[in-house]
Nucleic acid binder design. Structure first.
Length: 455
RNA sequence: GGAUAGGUGGCAGAGCGGUUAUGCGUGGGACUGCAGAUCCCAUCUAUUAGGGUUCGAAUCCCUACCUAUCCUCCA
């Protein structure tokens, strides 16, 4: 398997160990506001990656943090005049709710920042003791120049960072490029006790404290959106490696690209974002997943109606065929190997190109549709197995609606409809068809017989 | 200005030196009582620009131009 690794800037052989747990960490959100398609993209992508790895037999521990204390949360709380945790809880709940709806369920553990204050303080203590961090009147800072590899991950050199300094420089910072790891509280702000007085953690150290607790000083895969490469991940590397002395933090760095609107990054500040909830008013979660996975992960996507409509059309086509196949009699013999799956898996294993998987699956769907009536039981089994396999990590086959209609009743209705049609009572026949559709049952007249399925 | 990706038909996107992929859209047709689903045909005959290498380039090299992300909080 190959993945593009940000640090080495090359496609690297993804060399994971089947005998050990594969440790994957992906940066979670700051729970300060509603979530948009940008979030959906990142988390859907890594969900599919982890599901694929598991499918392949790896035992993956997928860890994600949740930033539940942060300036933005405090600001929001002040605007609404409520305690900060009213905000963080509200959006944490919304986040979990959306994750569930989008079928993003591969994360083993969500680590909340505020539940790891101890670990954070311990890391800061080590950094201060080793001389990597220093205290000022408003906080504790990490001294960037003490870490020679700073800038390596993002391809920045320290000098150009200095000249580009849009960094707001606090007077007491020894270097404008230094970053906070502990913020001392201002009146009215939430706080935790620490050796440096009351305050709260900086963002970067939150993640290293969490990953160190669950994974130790190094782990296998670190993922997130590309916008976090600098300074966030750069800072994580500096912090953890300064503490551990190890030559690396994560063996692989996988960064997914942005979602754009009118060629611009979807973001809060530009007010050009579309919330996930909004999209789910008109599209199925599976259609959104398809749309987002139908793009190479390192390419930006422009978010347009076309993108979703194409996904809708394709998900519909795959699903319809899938339901029809399910009505047939597949062979139950064990086939040695499914050649289609082998071919499709090559796409996944070359840079997780789910898009190519979809493309080839669609071609197969066309082929199966043409021969639908003449497929052998073996071919039916292969087709179903192939779609199931793709669905096992992409989750694009819409779930059936909960239903209570019995098969016998449906058959009865269809018999009645048949006799109506024979008597040319098409109005009545169409009414039955429409009612069944409303109940999530699709029917299809095929000459003498009528087939149906629940979708 | 620096770092990193890119620039292919109406849109999305393959191709990695030698068949105008493919999907969506659009038009037409088959099937159907009508739908739906599916299929067939067509449409679009595209590769940012200019040089170069080559028998031959979307594909390699150079130059220019353009776009996105990051260099500040951000998935």
């Amino acid at each position: 398997m190959y993945v593009y690794d940000t640090l080495s800037r090359t496609e690297k052989n993804l060399d994971l160990n089947h005998d050990q747990v594969v440790r994957v960490f992906v940066c979670g959100p700051t729970v300060q506001d509603s979530f948009h398609i940008g979030h959906a993209r990142t988390y859907t992508f890594f969900d599919a990656v982890v599901k694929y790895l598991r499918r392949k037999g790896y035992s993956v521990f997928y860890l994600q943090n949740i930033t539940d204390i942060d300036d933005k949360i405090i600001n929001r709380a002040n605007e609404e005049n409520v305690p900060y945790d009213v905000i963080s809880r509200r959006y944490t709940e919304e986040f979990f709710d959306i994750m569930e709806t989008l079928r993003i369920n591969s994360v083993n553990f969500y680590a909340m920042a505020t539940q790891h204050i101890h670990e954070i303080i311990r890391q800061i203590q080590v950094l201060v003791k080793k001389g990597y961090a220093y205290e000022t009147t408003d906080g504790v800072y990490f001294s960037v120049t003490k870490f020679p590899d700073y800038g390596q991950l993002s391809g920045q050199d320290l000098e150009s960072l200095r000249t580009g300094a849009r960094v707001e420089s606090s007077e007491e910072k020894r270097d404008p490029r230094d970053f906070v790891i502990w913020k001392k509280m201002k009146p009215g702000e939430p706080f935790w006790n620490s050796p440096w007085g009351n305050g709260r953690p900086g963002w970067h150290i939150e993640d290293t404290a969490i990953t160190e607790k669950y994974f130790g000083p190094t782990y296998d895969i670190h993922g997130a959106g590309m916008d976090l490469i600098f300074p966030h991940h750069e800072a994580e590397v500096a912090l953890e490696r300064s503490i551990s002395g190890e030559p690396y933090l994560s063996r692989y760095w996988i960064h997914s690209a942005m979602v754009n609107v009118n060629q611009e990054k979807m973001s809060k500040s530009l007010k050009n974002y579309v919330t996930i909830r909004k999209v789910l008013e008109d599209y199925l979660p599976e259609e959104l997943r398809y749309a987002l996975l139908n793009v190479q992960f390192r390419s930006n996507v422009n978010f347009t109606p076309d993108l979703l409509n194409e996904a809708k059309a394709n998900v519909g086509a795959i699903n319809t065929l899938y339901r029809k196949l399910k009505l047939k009699q597949p062979s139950h013999e064990n086939s040695d190997e499914n050649p289609e799956i082998r071919r499709l898996s090559e796409h996944v294993e070359r840079n997780f190109d789910f898009r190519l998987v979809f493309r080839d699956l669609l071609e197969l769907v066309g082929k199966w549709n043409v021969n639908l009536e003449s497929l052998t039981p073996m071919e039916i089994a292969t087709a179903i197995e192939t779609i199931d396999w793709v669905d096992s990590f992409t989750c694009i086959i819409p779930r059936k609606k909960e239903d209570s209609t019995s098969d016998e009743l449906i058959s009865l209705l269809l018999r009645i409809r048949r006799s109506m049609r024979e008597k040319k009572d098409f109005t009545g026949a169409d009414e039955i068809r429409k009612s069944l559709r409303d109940m999530g049952i699709t029917i299809e007249d095929r000459g003498e017989e009528t087939i149906w399925w629940k979708s």
